[in-house]
Design a protein around this nucleic acid. Structure first.
Length: 217
DNA sequence: TACCAGGAGAAAA
DNA sequence: TTTTCTCATGGT
């Protein structure tokens, strides 16, 4: 990843869309719950599920674990995959408490915290990195499907690289910069929603004249 | 009607 | 080891 072009893409997206103010949550724990619920799911549906859940219980690991799995799944119904997500959310809460809760996890260094999160069934690389960056403010770049799609179209990625390869490429190009990582990932998602989603199978939208990112090519 | 969404894990090849 | 399948509601 060419560092200069990597920064140019960010500047171009920021100029096009402005600050995104991520993550849309009130507390670090809400970030974590949202990160699990948003797996392969539109955020608007996650919001519905969070509203249903917080309408029934306090949003704490203890309260979630006190709810039986069927009741939890019912609350999560609007965000899809509700049976799987109920199980994953309960498992996550167990891992959260086993790690000493917010304070215990915050005391871990970033590699240790990442390992702990990845050891929790249902937490993959992207979910772990969402949590690291947006809940714990650690300098970890979040890679998602939009990142691959946009940067492949820009010719900055092949598109078939492994998760860790892409993450390392961004972190090397940009240096450890939490506010930048926070803003950049949010802008990529915004761009994906605004442009790529309108033409999901289009391979060239980021190269077209109407695309905000076209200026970097 | 068909496709996709801020993935992850199990099963099959 | 790599690819394919499953999970599921809601918006476009």
């Amino acid at each position: 990843m060419n560092p200069e072009r990597c920064r140019t893409v960010h500047a171009t997206l920021e100029a096009a869309y402005g600050p995104q103010g991520w993550w849309p949550a009130q507390t670090p724990f809400e970030v974590m719950v949202g990160a699990v619920l948003t797996q392969n799911t539109a955020w608007t549906n996650v919001e519905r599920a969070l509203e249903r859940l917080t309408g029934r219980i306090e949003l704490t690991a203890e309260a979630i674990l006190a709810l039986d799995e069927a009741a939890l799944a019912d609350a999560l119904r609007p965000c899809g995959y509700f049976n799987i997500k109920a199980r994953r959310l309960r498992t996550f809460c167990q891992g959260f408490l086993a790690g000493g809760g917010l304070a215990g996890l915050a005391a871990l260094d970033t590699p240790g915290l990442r390992r702990h999160l990845l050891d929790i069934p249902g937490v993959g690389p992207e979910t772990a990195d969402d949590i690291l960056l947006y809940a714990f403010e650690r300098p970890v770049f979040v890679v998602d499907a939009y990142t691959r799609r946009v940067f492949a179209r820009l010719g900055l990625l092949r598109g078939d690289e492994g998760y860790e390869t892409v993450r390392a490429a961004f972190e090397t190009a940009l240096g450890a910069d939490v506010p930048l990582f926070n803003a950049y990932h949010a802008l990529i998602v915004r761009h994906g929603k605004e442009v790529c989603r309108t033409r999901p199978r289009c391979q060239t939208c980021c190269l077209s004249a109407g695309c905000p990112a076209a200026a970097v090519t």
